[in-house]
């Protein structure tokens, strides 16, 4: 039990570091670069003619932040999934460390990663099939 707790602690601190770095990058883009870099079409789409595995991720994140959950799932299901898993893990682990109530932090399981990879593959194959065979685009 002690060894399992060390893994969660390590993941929690790594998560905090990446959260801070991500917030810094977002702030840099939002306040400094957003109006200086034009939006350009996806490199993968231009070269190969198909959606890339991450296509729709930015739109999904924007939709999620605006409360449009179904749109976020449609654009890219990994984003709401990651928000639930990573957000739930960080919040519960943080609450456990702060000693709030009797909250027990979520434990890490390997299937978290497997499910995420599965969603990426599902989105990649499904979206391209819809586009190629039925002409349905994002």
């Amino acid at each position: 039990m002690g060894k399992k707790r060390t893994l969660e602690t390590e993941l929690f601190y790594i998560g905090l570091i990446f959260l801070g770095l991500g917030a810094g990058v977002w702030a840099l883009y939002h306040f400094a670069l957003q109006n200086r870099i034009p939006r350009m079409p996806c490199f993968f789409d231009e070269v190969f003619g198909i959606y890339c595995p991450g296509c729709g991720g930015t739109r999904a994140l924007t939709a999620l932040l605006h409360g449009r959950l179904l749109s976020a799932v449609w654009y890219h299901p990994l984003i709401p999934y990651a928000a639930v898993i990573c957000g739930g893990f960080m919040v519960t682990q943080g609450l456990e460390r702060l000693g709030v109530g009797h909250v027990r932090g979520w434990r890490y399981h390997n299937w978290y990663l497997g499910a995420g990879v599965g969603l990426i593959a599902l989105n990649f194959i499904g979206k391209n099939m819809l586009r190629l065979f039925w002409g349905i685009t994002m």
Partner: peptide
């Protein structure tokens, strides 16, 4: 697996997914 290995895998997967986003991420 330890936390750094898991973080490495997550970063690698996200790097592949975000390669078309100007390449810098």
């Amino acid at each position: 697996a330890n936390g750094l290995q898991i973080a490495g895998l997550v970063c690698g997967i996200l790097a592949i997914c975000s390669c078309c986003c100007y390449g810098v991420p």
